[in-house]
């Protein structure tokens, strides 16, 4: 499945060839600049992304822990997610996200 990521500088990167099981690990394994300090256990907010509007409703809703962590992210928006909490599944082919500015806390 394919993911489209816009990095912090706005460059468009297509990810289709890495194995990562979460959105965060796919972005990281592609070599993009994502800190993901806690390694994917929703204990920080350094994998913060903005999900393009057409995709927000297709993702599983924000969990309680994720919601709390997003509160420390810089510039949280309606479409903010922690990419470590988004599982890569077939129905998300074409998912488009933007790496959020800053690296959280």
């Amino acid at each position: 499945m394919r993911i489209v990521v816009y990095d912090q500088g706005g460059a468009r990167v297509e990810i289709g060839d890495v194995a990562g099981q979460t959105l965060m690990s796919a972005i990281r394994d592609k070599g993009l600049n994502i800190t993901a300090q806690c390694g994917g256990c929703a204990a920080c907010a350094t994998c913060h992304v903005y999900v393009d509007d057409e995709w927000t409703s297709k993702l599983k809703p924000v969990g309680d822990v994720e919601d709390a962590m997003l509160d420390i992210a810089e510039e949280r928006q309606e479409n903010s997610r922690l990419s470590c909490q988004v599982k890569r599944t077939e129905d998300l082919d074409g998912l488009t996200v933007r790496l959020a500015p800053g690296s959280g806390f």
Binding site: R28, D29, K30, G31, N33, A36, G39, G40, C41
Partner: peptide, 23 residues
């Protein structure tokens, strides 16, 4: 941190790099 947690629980759990080689 996973080394003393999930890594010990699941023999298929892989090592998680901080950054990819490409980075």
């Amino acid at each position: 941190p996973p080394l003393s947690k999930s890594y010990l629980k699941d023999a298929s759990e892989e090592l998680m790099p901080l950054r990819a080689e490409a980075f």
